[in-house]
Design a protein around this nucleic acid. Structure first.
Lengths: 247, 247
DNA sequence: GCCTCCGGGATTGTAGACAATCTTCAATTG
DNA sequence: CAATTGAAGATTGTCTACAATCCCGGAGGC
């Protein structure tokens, strides 16, 4: 069976979802910001039906929250949320390493190396946004070694939420950007461990990997039973809307 | 903060999604079946925009696959897919046990006991569908012990796909239904291990848990590198549409 | 006889408009 | 003066209709 090369013009739903996703991840839209449908349609030059479908997609991805009869807002992440994202992400990576290392299909490694190369390029040209994207692609390609589509999809979705958090959080961004060279070096060691085919070594590298230290610190406060909020902490409150007027 | 008692009339999107989800899980719609929008709208008595939004939601849940310009069909699960669902599910359960056992909030146990009670009721009245639902709710409530919303959501989504598979697969259903009493007994032991607060014991119970044996058998053929299909095995082929006329 | 190339019908993709609901804010009342 | 109520504006939820695209069958040519 040849690879599926069918071309297909992307629907407005897909394009709109992509555009809004970029707005959110770039920090153009901040958590809590409300998205008024008519405003967005005029901005994107489309009508409301495809926009609403796109909003549903992004809601399922966890980037937006919809309040019935009240519109959608950009997801607000509590410390507890960050804790959840962090722990789940670690579990995914662990599973991926166990399934995917040592690597069976050498072609999969090409994707990892490519991402690392893009990280190096971005570091050279001091392109912070590109560096972050490449870094996520690197980790995603590591998870891809497992050849487990659902695992990769789930990991990708979680990464989106993590990027949402980083986009809104100056400190998280700074941490990720600081000492690009050291950051890249860690990724090199990770790749080396993967190439050596030693799962334990890879897991060890991941354990003390970059953003980890920072994230652990941030999320420590959210651990434990007492940190669990009473209400639905994913449903943004009304004040979240009031406080943020859509651009 | 008092519990959120806001009433809100469900939108047609939510209702439609629920209705179609039920059709899929009940086996009323079978994998590969095509969903023609206008036909479904007239059946549900709604118009196309809300229906399309509902379809997007179900697509994100993995129950439907959308082929651009060609409509939507019920997801067809390959052995590889079942393998993925099975492995991910195991990982989720393991993570949940590690985080949630011993149980901190006794109230969480009530949910588990309730589900077990419903399983017993269903067994008594020989209500197979109810038994399956209760069984899934039991496992979901076990995962809920972790107090990890994203984990529970992910697990719920995966369970939907597993139920899709079981709805279409006579053998899987039979396995699940056979010896209801023994099945319930396994769940009782699981609950007992949870109540004892011993994570290892719970994991051991899960390891040789019911459907496991069957699923492992089914999915063994899908493991290993050679089982990975070349193309996109989640994208149904054109013939899938031709072969199935919408009810 | 098989392949290619059209139309016709069916279906999806999108637009614009109406109805229902919510929020806001000012007027009223205690 | 604080609390409540009601009306106007804004926004979401839904519907009908039109445009674009695809599938399928038949006619024509090699």
């Amino acid at each position: 069976m040849p690879p599926d090369r069918r071309i297909q013009q992307p629907s407005l739903v897909r394009l709109a979802a992509e555009a809004i996703r970029d707005m959110v991840l770039s920090g153009d839209l901040r958590p809590g910001d409300r998205l008024v449908e008519e405003r967005v349609t005029s901005e994107l030059g489309i009508s409301r039906p495809p926009l609403r479908e796109a909003l549903r997609v992004l809601e399922q991805e966890g980037l937006l929250v919809s309040l019935p009869r009240r519109g959608v807002i950009v997801t607000t992440l509590s410390p507890r949320d960050v804790y959840e994202i962090f722990t789940l992400r670690t579990t995914y990576e662990k599973m991926a390493i166990e399934l995917g290392v040592p690597v069976r299909d050498p072609q999969l490694l090409g994707r990892v190396r490519l991402a690392l190369g893009q990280m190096e390029d971005a570091a050279k040209s001091q392109d912070g946004a590109h560096f972050v994207r490449s870094s996520f692609e690197f980790h995603l390609s590591i998870v891809g070694l497992a050849g487990h589509r659902r695992l990769e999809d789930a990991y990708r979705g979680l990464s989106l939420q993590l990027r949402l958090y980083m986009a809104a959080n100056t400190r998280a961004r700074a941490e990720h950007n600081e000492s690009l060279e050291a950051n890249i070096e860690r990724h090199r060691r990770l790749l080396a461990a993967v190439e050596k085919g030693d799962p334990e070594a890879v897991l060890a590298e991941l354990a003390n990997h970059g953003a980890r230290t920072f994230l652990e610190e941030v999320t420590n406060q959210a651990q434990g039973p007492e940190a669990q909020q009473q209400g639905d902490d994913r449903r943004a409150t009304l004040s979240d809307i009031r406080d943020h007027i859509s651009r």
